[in-house]
């Protein structure tokens, strides 16, 4: 094999292990993982507020119908998807994922269908409720949202 460019290879550094006094795997015990999970659970409430703010911003962008609004909507839905999954709000994550799926493969000046978007935003709002993940009604709403996205993508010639 011929080499196009000179390659400099630097040996792996075990500086962090030396600094810590041993391998990290020995220090990160099941108890440490449990503590990390407990710390994570403590910060769940403020995330609900952030999700509401992101959904509000998304709705404003939807109604403004200005170029670039699509990017705000996609980014906000993407953020909600990440936050929801991290704090185990499954239905909320699914609703946000529907928005991302609907907006995927579209340009920045794309104007999404107001009805489809609004349907999913309502599902996302409902999914913020404490008991959302065990509520069969919200599951049905997510399924309806998924069908609406599929149909709309098909109407727009994207599926």
């Amino acid at each position: 094999m011929s080499a196009e460019t000179p390659v400099e290879l630097i040996a792996p550094s075990f500086r962090l292990q030396r600094k810590m006094g041993g391998p990290a795997s020995r220090l990160l015990t099941p108890e440490a993982y449990r503590q990390a999970n407990a710390a994570l659970e403590e910060i769940i409430p403020p995330i609900d507020e952030e999700v509401r703010r992101l959904l509000q911003e998304l709705q404003e962008a939807l109604q403004a119908k200005v170029p670039g609004g699509r990017d705000i909507m996609w980014n906000n839905a993407h953020e909600i998807r990440g936050l929801a999954g991290t704090v185990s709000k499954i239905t909320l994550g699914q609703a946000a994922n529907l928005i991302c799926h609907y907006l995927n493969d579209t340009a920045s000046d794309f104007l999404p269908d107001q009805n489809v978007m609004q349907t999913i935003v309502v599902v996302a709002m409902q999914a913020l409720r404490e008991e959302a993940d065990t509520d069969p009604m919200i599951k049905v709403m997510v399924q309806d949202g998924a069908r609406a996205v599929l149909a709309q993508r098909h109407r727009e010639g994207r599926d």
Binding site: P6, E8, L9, I10, M20, A24, L28
Partner: peptide
Amino acid sequence: AKTLLDRIVAVIDRPRSFVQT
């Protein structure tokens, strides 16, 4: 917590060679 801490373990316990081209 697990996925993040596992990656931290990986960079500390299994460092890789560094390549410069």
